[in-house]
């Protein structure tokens, strides 16, 4: 029989029966700050009584550690691990403990506020209260430590909160989202996040599918790309532009040109490359009547994108175009010619 009971005593103390496994009962009590969060994780995952015991023992000193820097560091690390595993509930408690333990404005404090905000933002189920809590924490971070490494992401996340519907009847506020994205671009123009904010900003115009707005989104991205040779997201931006020119703008030449620019930089996502090469081949053959380009991309479908299922049709297309037809290499049991990737 296994059960767990957690009893929170009034004030600062908590008494917990962590679990009962066979004849063993594991108890612990301690200050609310820090410790219980880890215990909740232990309870939740029920790894083993030994692990729970270790967790209890290792965190007992923390219960009375106050603002012990190494304790805070451990809590931050544990919180980060929990957040990485998407255990937002446990992570938020840990970050909450650090917020109480550390001086506002310090880097550990900023780390914890940001972590707590992300947890509130994404803890399931998403509710209005949690989203408001997340927004409050992001604002707190921006107002208190605008120079922190977490600040630009906090500002961008406020834009995401405005752009997306987070819960039932959450209104989409594209104008507010745009203001946050612009603020990131203006305030941190030299950080990589400025490129991400530009992509987000452009997307808020594109997703209206109102043609002047769509064109404005395209202009924003093209302007950014002409002035930023070192933009890390450039390949993705060109691919996105290729998509927009294809639909809804139906400018097939511009679409193919953008895709090719993205390809030249190395597409960000190589996993669905076959269907993208197929589209490029069809654009070249059907709409631009550019045989050479069509042959190039049908060949790429066969050589690098055959897992899309389009390899055989690409072979047929090459035959139709009178071009050499490469063999499909998929599932050749003894083919060892493939170079290491």
């Amino acid at each position: 029989m296994k059960y767990e009971v957690v009893v929170t005593m009034p004030g600062h103390f908590r008494f917990s029966i962590l679990r009962r496994t066979g004849p063993f009962l594991i108890f612990r009590w301690g200050q609310l700050r820090g410790v219980p969060s880890l215990l909740i994780r232990s309870i939740k995952n029920q790894r083993s009584k030994i692990k729970n015991s270790i967790a209890v023992l290792s965190f007992l000193p923390l219960a009375s550690a106050g603002a012990d820097p190494s304790g805070v560091e451990t809590l931050l690390q544990t919180g980060t691990t929990e957040l990485s595993s998407r255990n937002f509930e446990a992570a938020k408690e840990l970050f909450g403990s650090v917020i109480k333990e550390t001086a506002p404005g310090s880097e550990p404090w900023a780390h914890a506020v940001f972590g707590a905000a992300v947890c509130a933002h994404h803890r399931s189920p998403t509710t209005q209260k949690r989203v408001e809590d997340a927004a409050r924490l992001y604002h707190l971070l921006l107002e208190s430590v605008a120079g922190s490494k977490f600040a630009p992401r906090a500002a961008l996340n406020l834009g995401r909160l405005a752009e997306l519907r987070d819960y039932y009847e959450d209104p989409v506020d594209l104008e507010a989202a745009r203001n946050w994205y612009r603020r990131v671009i203006d305030r941190w123009p030299d950080l990589p996040i400025a490129g991400e904010a530009t992509l987000r900003l452009a997307a808020t115009f594109v997703q209206t599918y109102d043609m002047p707005e769509v064109r404005h989104g395209v202009d924003l991205l093209e302007t950014w790309l002409t002035t930023r040779d070192d933009e890390p997201l450039a390949a993705g931006m060109w691919q996105y532009l290729g998509d927009i020119y294809f639909y809804p703008l139906a400018d097939h030449a511009a679409s193919l040109s953008c895709y090719r620019k993205g390809e030249a930089l190395g597409f960000l996502d190589p996993n669905n490359i076959g269907t993208l090469f197929w589209r490029m081949a069809i654009l070249a053959e059907r709409f631009l009547e550019d045989r050479e380009l069509a042959v190039e991309y049908y060949g790429k479908v066969i050589r690098t994108g055959a897992a899309s299922g389009k390899g055989y049709q690409a072979q047929q297309a090459l035959e139709r175009l009178g071009a050499p037809v490469p063999e499909l290499q998929l599932f050749q049991p003894i083919a060892l010619t493939r170079p290491p990737e």
Binding site: T80, L83, S84, H111, F114, G115, V118, H122, F150, R153
Partner: peptide
């Protein structure tokens, strides 16, 4: 958000 946090942290 999780991935961005991992990178920042």
């Amino acid at each position: 958000a999780t991935q961005a946090s991992r990178i920042l942290m």
